[in-house]
Design a protein around this nucleic acid. Sequence first.
DNA 1: ATACTTTATTTAAACGTTTAAATAGATGAG
DNA 2: CTCATCTATTTAAACGTTTAAATAAAGTAT
Lengths: 310, 310
Amino acid sequence: MATIKDVAQLAGVSFATVSYVLNDSMPVSEATRNKVLAAVTKLGYQPHRQGRNLQRQRTLTIGVLLPQANLLCEVDLATWLLEATNAATSAGYSLLLQPADSQARGDLADGWISFGTPLDPQLPQVWALAPPCDQPAVLCDAAFAAQRAVETLTHSGMRRIGLITLPRSIPGSARWYLGYRRALRRAGLGFDPGLVVEPAANRFHDGVAAYETLAASENDYDGLIVCGHQLATGVVMVDHAKVPVIVSHSSSQRGISGFRWPTELWAHTLVRKLLQQLDGAAIAHRTWLNPSLVIGSLGFKEDLDGFNYV
Amino acid sequence: MATIKDVAQLAGVSFATVSYVLNDSMPVSEATRNKVLAAVTKLGYQPHRQGRNLQRQRTLTIGVLLPQANLLCEVDLATWLLEATNAATSAGYSLLLQPADSQARGDLADGWISFGTPLDPQLPQVWALAPPCDQPAVLCDAAFAAQRAVETLTHSGMRRIGLITLPRSIPGSARWYLGYRRALRRAGLGFDPGLVVEPAANRFHDGVAAYETLAASENDYDGLIVCGHQLATGVVMVDHAKVPVIVSHSSSQRGISGFRWPTELWAHTLVRKLLQQLDGAAIAHRTWLNPSLVIGSLGFKEDLDGFNYV
DNA sequence: ATACTTTATTTAAACGTTTAAATAGATGAG
DNA sequence: CTCATCTATTTAAACGTTTAAATAAAGTAT
């Protein structure tokens, strides 16, 4: 592995000059610059991260605090990580994984991000140590989705909207409920507890069970919202498409309406914001990213005329 | 952030002595050792990773090459990463994420691992640069699962076993097919192409379609194997439980038999092996981890007496 | 007591880089 | 021709650690 000294020797200059060329931190004559660059390419020289960091007091690394369990069932952690990695890499940084409950964060990274939204009151307790409070707040809110779903249905004339929530043990579940209630209030509709079913767990057949509970009850509903990928799969399986259904995750599986979560954009934005913050820029206090509703082809669009959401 | 010099000063010794105490690399008298340790705890000193690495030529970091798409549909990348992180952290290492197609790997990490199995011939082409060929081979093979599934069914007297494979576009799909054919051969059963259906894609309703194709064909089958989580969900949804079914992923959703993939153990073992390799130990050429078959309660166990797999 | 060994500690060099300060070389003004 | 000014380059210190080599202090054999 070639060092800066090898480059300097080959180019016949001092290694400080090489550094100046590479960092543009001092004026260098055209002639020497060319000599240096030639030597760099010839040797395939790449600056040594550790050595550079030692001086600059920068690690060129972004830490990711990884919770022991996937906190956010709206978004796929793998996709999120991949996109965060891409964003970091293209800025010359790399991503360092650290368990959220581990001790030493210290000087391993210049800044820390975490996978999760600070909105849910349940979330903080998952972090053993203090949460990364200086993380730029990029928010992607399930309450928005719930609200949007309700609005979509009420704009189309529905008045009694059923909700199959996530079990309350799941972080983030409260946001769905919150958005649902808020939207009902704003639409001037009353809240009927009989229209809300909370499944026992977040699995396929819990969705089926919840759906059957709702259907068997005397509560009539003319629209339905289902949270959670697994639950929704179960519901869609047994649903008779009598009323419009909106699920938490758009899926190509069937023509059901659902949300597309901006996972990639979210990760990307979070990393970019952090980098800006590290550069000393004052960043926006909060950035909101909204899931978008994808209208399906099945049992909904056909029933509703004048429907203009995309 | 306290440095080793601060500790040395407080303890009234040279900073080399501090280093010796902390690394046990030279004999130190009991008295000074105590003085040093007291100073360390008092200042909350933690050795600076970068500085240490510079000298040791070790980064104390393991790189993970992250493919742009999840290669292995048997295993959840998030779980894998989390466990790998835990394993690395407990050994004092951290995990660094790098896109598989990025250029500079160089000196960012002491060793590299990747998510994927080197068994499938399709896999290498996903890596833009050379695959991390010195990665310890910890293998978790879908062919084994397929084979085991066939054996389980044939041991119970089934003779005509249907297979809903993964689409061949998906890396790893070939392993299922391979194991299936191998097991048939070993069981002395002929191969009937009519019993194998390859869905168009790896989605819920492709599973449904594949199942219906198989059911509608004139080919009778007395057992069924379904690969892929999504496909299996679809199949299970429409299956009438007439014949025993084994799916690729055990799931608590319903009492269907399926495999549990040792994701955590896999990640853990891979990291441990790499660390041993870095320490200069000669490690086993290949380590095999096998998925275990979880027998479900539905439509299978009841039909088969004398069933002793767990 | 002197020389030799052993043990505990310190000094100093090294790792690969950046960067402040020093120096050399050229240019221009007096 | 000398001095000051500017520019291009080099020297050397620094970052936080490890570790080989040097030193000091003590113990043991002669």
